[in-house]
């Protein structure tokens, strides 16, 4: 069936190149070379390196996780410390407020007492002045009454008897 020239060249080999035994030696030789080369490369260079990289990555990941755990713990501690400090600060603040309040109270009481004293002094002084003024006023009222009485007596045509008038007026005023 097949008899043209291109076929004639292949006539020596069977139809399936896979069954062409003349090429087996070649293929086997190069396959062995290839496999040996790959094996050497893999076992000497590639596989140890990849194993290293994977181990390194696992280590660094677990380290990172440990570090994160550590930081979390530290954050918790810091939070506790913060709360403690906050409470202490609050207590101190309220103490200060109390002290200030007490101090102010004391000062206020002193000031009030002082002011009270001054006020009572002033009141006493004023009362004295008022007393004096009242005394003066009474005296002058007697004078006015005496002079008015003697003037009235004069106007009515009576006799001006000053000492008796004065006596009468003062007795009237006391009564």
């Amino acid at each position: 069936m097949a008899s043209n020239s291109s076929e004639a060249a292949e006539a020596a080999s069977p139809g399936m190149p896979q069954l062409d035994f003349s090429s087996f030696g070649n293929q086997i030789f190069w396959l062995v070379v290839t496999l040996v080369v790959i094996y050497v490369i893999l076992s000497r260079v590639a596989l140890p390196r990849i194993a290293d990289v994977l181990a390194e990555r696992r280590e660094s990941i677990s380290n990172d996780i440990a570090a994160a755990e550590d930081l979390k713990l530290k954050a918790g501690e810091a939070e506790v410390a913060y709360h403690k400090a906050l409470a202490a600060a609050r207590a101190a603040a309220s103490n200060i407020v109390e002290a200030a309040k007490a101090e102010i109270k004391v000062e206020l009481a002193a000031a009030i007492a002082k002011a009270d004293g001054e006020i009572s002094d002033k009141v006493a002084e004023g009362e004295k002045v008022i007393q004096e003024i009242r005394k003066d006023a009474l005296a002058s009222v007697e004078d006015v009454a005496k002079s008015t009485a003697s003037a009235l007596i004069g106007a009515l045509g009576g006799k001006d008897d000053a000492p008796s008038v004065a006596k009468a007026v003062s007795s009237e005023m006391k009564g």
């Binding site: 003349s22 090429s23 070649n26 086997i28 030789f29 190069w30």
Partner: peptide, 11 residues
């Protein structure tokens, strides 16, 4: 010819 050491397309 394809000898055992010949550099072929397999190689």
């Amino acid at each position: 010819p394809v000898l055992w050491y010949t550099i072929t397309n397999v190689t």
